[in-house]
Amino acid sequence: MRRVNRQALFGAALLGFFVILAIIAPLIAPYNPDEIVESQTLAPSLSHLFGTDDLGRDLFSRALHGARISLTVGFVAVLISVLIGTLFGAVSGYYGGFLDSVIMRFVDVMLAFPSIFLILAIQSMLTPNIYNVMAVIGLTSWMGVARLVRGEFLRIRELQYVEAARAIGCSDPRIIFRHILPNAQSPIIVAATLGMAGAILTESALSFLGLGVQPPMASWGNMLMDSQAYLFDAPWMSIIPGLLILLTVLSLYFVGEGLREKLNVRG
């Protein structure tokens, strides 16, 4: 088996494992994630696999529930960015001309922002909750997809079958969505996979700075926010959530690379 395939398989398996754990979290979590069940900052043990946090909550249960939040945020954020990016890219590439230049200049503007700073600034002024986090990440990360889709459209719209569709009088939306888009989906899927990795990283950074998902709701990022103060006393509070983020993002990268090879997308 080739290396890329091995990695992709490993990534898919790990990712699947995390997703399943996230889905059945309420069934398998030994404790209520918000409940104070033990004394504070206990080291990992058999009764508390990941130890307890600074309030005496079970970190294993919080990590399981945190998986739901972190994965959902990553998924929805990337969905938003792919939707926006595809729409802009498709319109830009299909119609070209003035519309194209306007959209592409807008993309240039958005790309010139120091994006994490933009996200921090917007997020700090909104009520911090999970929906805003998803929206803000989605709204600031669609530019790559837009450029990609535009490129695909520029290529595909010149192909003969599109000419044919136009000749028989298909409407523009129909051509865009039924004829061109399906043929441009491979690079979008690859970009979405890698984008989800990025979104999860961004969520964790936001939550770490206290601007993301808010406690008492657990996400891997805000579990880390609590941990910095306890770096000396309870290092497991920082090590475990960080490792979970690392592994999830890594597996997404592996899956993305695998898809890239398999779907023959240029990198």
Partner: peptide
């Protein structure tokens, strides 16, 4: 790949844990 997947702030914390603490 691991380097791309590692959250920067967490890497910072881990380095602190190892080298400072």
């Amino acid at each position: 790949f691991a380097g791309m997947a590692i959250p920067t702030f967490w890497l910072g914390l881990m380095l602190m844990l190892l080298f400072s603490v």
